[in-house]
Amino acid sequence: MAHLRRPRPATHALGRRRTLSTPVAAGALVRSLTERLGSDLGNLWTDEDTVEFTVDGARNVEVLTTLRDDPDLEFFMLADAAAVDYGTDAHFEVVYHLFSWKHPAWLRVRARVDRANPRVPTVTGLWEGAMFHEREMFDMMGIIFDGNRDLRRIYMSPDYRSFPQRRDFVLPDDAADSPAAGVNPLERPETWDLTRFNEAPAVTFPPSSERDDAPAEGGEGGEGGETLVDKSRPR
């Protein structure tokens, strides 16, 4: 069972050892899954509060229907549908997280999708709430859901041409390196109007003879007083 245990760092370094907050009856769930799904199940892995397995992308609707409708499993709620990009040479993955009252573990279904032809059947027939999830996955990753009645972009503009969350979409390192750098008037000294600073300041201080903090200077004459009076506008 060692291959099913989550890898832990060395105990001396860090915090308190993690204790289970929900004891998982993983045995019952794993047994039901292997009985019902059999050949579709791949790479079953369990953690203290999660059970995950991998399926092929084309089989996702059948697998999720079984998970939802079977009386032993009854995973009635789709908590999350996410897309993962494993790199330009590798595949995509659509990851579903499901909840059931009967099993105190989250179930994670990882559906593997080909990168060259990223098409997956839609699960909006099972859960209508998957519509926005799938639209977001299409917008950000470019995964196409067959059978989805409304597969259009949701976050970016409809004429946006790229898929931002893919690994080959790289954010600019510095705004200065981007082609739009230097557009801002604050970034262009030639647009600064320095004549504004020749006007008198709006806040002035009383002459030094009246100030409390500075020591009174004898013999200064009246020169220290005039420049501090603001005559730029009527008062």
């Binding site: 860090l14 915090g15 308190r16 997280h97 989250w106 994670r108």
Partner: peptide, 18 residues
């Protein structure tokens, strides 16, 4: 706060928290 380094490097894996 647990004693954790400034930049943590967890082991490869997946986690889901709701």
């Amino acid at each position: 706060q647990a004693q954790v380094p400034g930049i943590i490097r967890p082991r490869p894996g997946r986690a889901y928290a709701a």
